[in-house]
Design a protein around this nucleic acid. Structure first.
Lengths: 324, 324
DNA sequence: CTGAAAGCGCTTACAG
DNA sequence: CTGAAAGCGCTTACAG
């Protein structure tokens, strides 16, 4: 039913070997023969079975990608960058999430053992870092995207958490803000520590309120600071969601942004342009992160040596009305 | 190097056939033999090569999914639903976008011919509908997600555009709004026509302003209506982005929401809760759309007959402060 | 420049 | 209950 290499060979009066050579454009084929075979391939609409090619060659020309929840919008942007790059190189992309905990993890490692893909891209491995490390040690090419500052022993693409936070601090200082409130993410994330250090180096004097990257934690931090009589003329939140919560609480308390309090977030999610006022934020180059990681992995599969240190992509301060 | 079925067979002193039977839990195997083989499989950490199994069986246990840009956030939600369902059934998911036009399309149809996946999920086929139709006719199982109201000749999962718009209209009418301004999406989309009809049946009297699903088109429509002296006490925008634009223009013009003008959107993107005021909107069940489509396709591959009509999933009016 | 044959790692009648 | 053999659709030494 489906057209196979044997059909092409028979029709062209040559061996499968020759057809294979034509397809893979090996130079040893007679020009006339090649042309004839190519014509038949076109007429029959023959396309090699990817499965069979993979089995014979021992590679699948497919990459795997493991992500936490897809509903975090910056991950969708990373994914877009990956898909673009992978498609352009003629590879396929197999997508996995670790949504359902242990069950997903088990299934996922099975896929690895089943050689379903040649290399793996991992975003923000939370609990899976050990598993990934083991797979990497067993020979699976892996590139990490945003290691959350953990810098483990394999290739990764990261962003400048330290410098990004510093740029936010410089922006506030230049605007004459002297009493910032910093609402952090979960304290055990290395990226959170990096952001805190980067900010502190520029503006050593500030209040710190613990947050959890959720929106409510931003509101809560602001409410508490106001209730405690803390004086602040700026908020630097460790992500956009938290910043949105801060905006909400400030409005509820009758503080105007940016007149009374300037607010800066981190990430530049799509929602950042839709808050009121639109949010000034430290943009993570999500799409570029994905592209770069995919390119690194593909290059490595093509024989290039793996880079030793993490590849660092710069953040960019996006100025909107919440902190002009 | 990698453990193969032959290794297991040799170690267990049985034939590959028997190992295969144990793996696929055929009943004809002696209990003791099966136990021994299983022990060896465990000890060796053997996992069947998915490529080889696929070649031998003629199926890949993989689904393909073709989406337009991933950066539209509701698509990420659809994708999440698909991935969850597909993973739970032990299938893989191969992701493709049609970002780069003709080039992507060509590569994509090659993948189809290469039998890289057993069935295909397609989101909102814009220009690719003809191609998809051809593939479907040639025997590829396909399920459409959100056909934008075109209802072509194959299985699809859609949402209630007509009823969703009607529910928005009823909500406005119940709140005593009598002069709505409707900002539409691109007029050639059947879903836009459905939304317009659904709204009209409840509130026949209204102004219509053409939009294009972009944010700016919402702002522009409001500015023009105000400039023209059009009197309106409500806005129904055909998507959330347009509604956000409308909110912005209303604020700039000094109209308060919802006091002067109530605003309702469509989609319930994550940003809808972050506008000021938070947006009342007609929620599309994106995650459920993905789950349902994946389940339909998987069931069909398992032998179930394809449903004849489109499967319709209800929208839900989410009331927030922009139209209480 | 070309082909016969073995091999990739499985599954599946078929025979016993 | 079990195994030898053919087959899935390719690639790749090897020989000519």
């Amino acid at each position: 039913m489906r057209v196979t290499m044997a059909d092409v060979a028979r029709e062209a009066g040559v061996s499968k070997t020759t057809v294979s050579r034509v397809i893979n454009t090996r130079s040893e084929v007679d020009r006339a023969t090649a042309a004839r075979v190519r014509a038949i391939i076109g007429r029959l609409g023959y396309v090699p079975s990817s499965g069979a090619v993979g089995l014979a060659r021992g590679t699948s020309r497919t990459l795997g990608m493991l992500v936490p929840s897809l509903t975090w919008s910056w991950i969708a942007e990373v994914l877009q960058g990956v898909v673009d790059t992978v498609e352009a190189r003629g590879y396929g992309l197999l997508l996995y999430t670790c949504n359902r905990g242990a069950e997903s993890a088990r299934r996922f490692t099975e896929q690895v053992s089943a050689r379903a893909f040649d290399g793996l891209l991992v975003v923000e491995p939370e609990n899976t870092l050990d598993t990934i490390g083991a797979l990497h040690r067993e020979g699976l090419p892996v590139v990490l995207i945003d290691d959350r500052g953990r810098h483990p022993a394999f290739p990764s693409v990261v962003t400048t958490n330290h410098e990004g936070a510093a740029s936010a601090a410089r922006h506030l200082r230049a605007a004459g803000r002297t009493r910032p409130l910093v609402i952090t993410g979960p304290g055990h994330f290395p990226c959170v520590q990096d952001r805190l250090r980067g900010f502190t180096e520029v503006l050593p004097e500030h209040h710190v309120a613990p947050g959890d990257f959720g929106e409510e934690s931003g509101s809560r931090a602001v409410r508490r600071a106001l209730a405690a009589g803390t004086v602040f003329d700026a908020v630097f939140a460790h992500n956009d969601l938290t910043a949105a919560g801060a905006l909400r609480a400030l409005r509820a308390a009758g503080r105007s942004v940016p007149e009374d309090v300037a607010v800066i977030g981190f990430d530049d999610l799509p929602m950042a342009r839709h808050t009121e006022p639109p949010l000034t934020t430290v943009r993570q180059p999500a799409g570029l992160l994905g592209e770069t990681a995919a390119r690194m992995l593909l290059d490595h599969l093509a024989g290039a040596p793996a880079p030793d240190g993490p590849v660092v992509l710069p953040t960019e301060l996006v100025v909107r009305r919440s902190a002009p």
